[in-house]
C-alpha cells in the first residue's frame, strides 16, 4: 500500500478525473492468500464474486439490507457489500466455499435436512451467518436465534426451517 495520499480532483463542474490507480492487494480467503488488482472502489463482495470467482457469496441488495453477502471475517459475520476489498487486507475471510474442512459442514447438512431454503439464493449468507452467530455465543434460545438471524432475509419464507436447522446444530454443539 502506498503511504503517500493521493487526491483526485473531481469538482462538480469539471470533467471526470483519471481513475484512482489500481492496487495490488493480498486477501486471505478460505485459508489461501490471493493477490488481486483492484481500484479502491471494489467492494469485498464484488472482489469475491468477480475477481476471485467465488460466486457462492450472493449479492441481494448491495446495501447491507438483506444479508445474502454475509461472510466471516476473523470468525465474525459481516456484510461483504459494505466494506472495500482494500480495507480487508490482513484479515482472515471465510466464504461459503471455505466453511467445510472436508465434505459438508454440519450447518450445511442441517439446512438440507430441514429444507431450510427454496430458491437457494439467501442460503450461503444464512449459513455463514448462522455459523458466525454460534461462534459469537450470544444465542441461547430459539427466540435469540430468530432475533440474531434477522439480518438475513429469505423471500421464499424458509425462516422456521432455518431456525430448526440452526437449533439442531446448536444443540449438537452443546452436547459435545
Amino acid at each position: 500500500m502506498k503511504s503517500e495520499p493521493q487526491v483526485i480532483n473531481n469538482e462538480h463542474d469539471k470533467l471526470p478525473a483519471a481513475l484512482a490507480p489500481e492496487l495490488d492487494i493480498v486477501l486471505r480467503v478460505n485459508g489461501h492468500d490471493r493477490t488481486i488488482t483492484v481500484r479502491p472502489w471494489v467492494t469485498l463482495l464484488d472482489a469475491l464474486r468477480g475477481r476471485l470467482d467465488l460466486t457462492g457469496t450472493k449479492k441481494g441488495c448491495d446495501h447491507g439490507q438483506c444479508g445474502a453477502c454475509t461472510v466471516l471475517v476473523n470468525g465474525k459475520r459481516i456484510n461483504s457489500c459494505l466494506t472495500l476489498a482494500v480495507m480487508q487486507t490482513g484479515n482472515d475471510i471465510t466464504t461459503i466455499e471455505g466453511i467445510a474442512q472436508d465434505g459438508m459442514h454440519p450447518m450445511q447438512q442441517a439446512f438440507i435436512d430441514h429444507d431450510a431454503f427454496q430458491c437457494g439464493y439467501c442460503t450461503p449468507g444464512q449459513i455463514c451467518s448462522a455459523i458466525g452467530m454460534l461462534n459469537e455465543g450470544h444465542a441461547h434460545t430459539r427466540g435469540d436465534v430468530q432475533e440474531l438471524m434477522s439480518g438475513n432475509l429469505c423471500r421464499c419464507g424458509a425462516y422456521t426451517n432455518i431456525v430448526d436447522a440452526i437449533m439442531e446444530v446448536k444443540e449438537a454443539q452443546g452436547n459435545e
Binding site: 460466486t55 467445510a100 429444507d115 450461503p124
Partner: peptide
C-alpha cells in the same frame, strides 16, 4: 425426500444468471 439440488445450494456451487464469469 430432501431437495436433490440441496448440496449445490448449501455449498454455493449452484450458479445463478450473474455468476458466469
Amino acid at each position: 425426500i430432501s431437495r436433490v439440488d440441496g448440496p449445490a445450494k448449501v455449498t454455493g456451487t449452484a450458479k445463478y444468471a450473474a455468476e458466469y464469469n
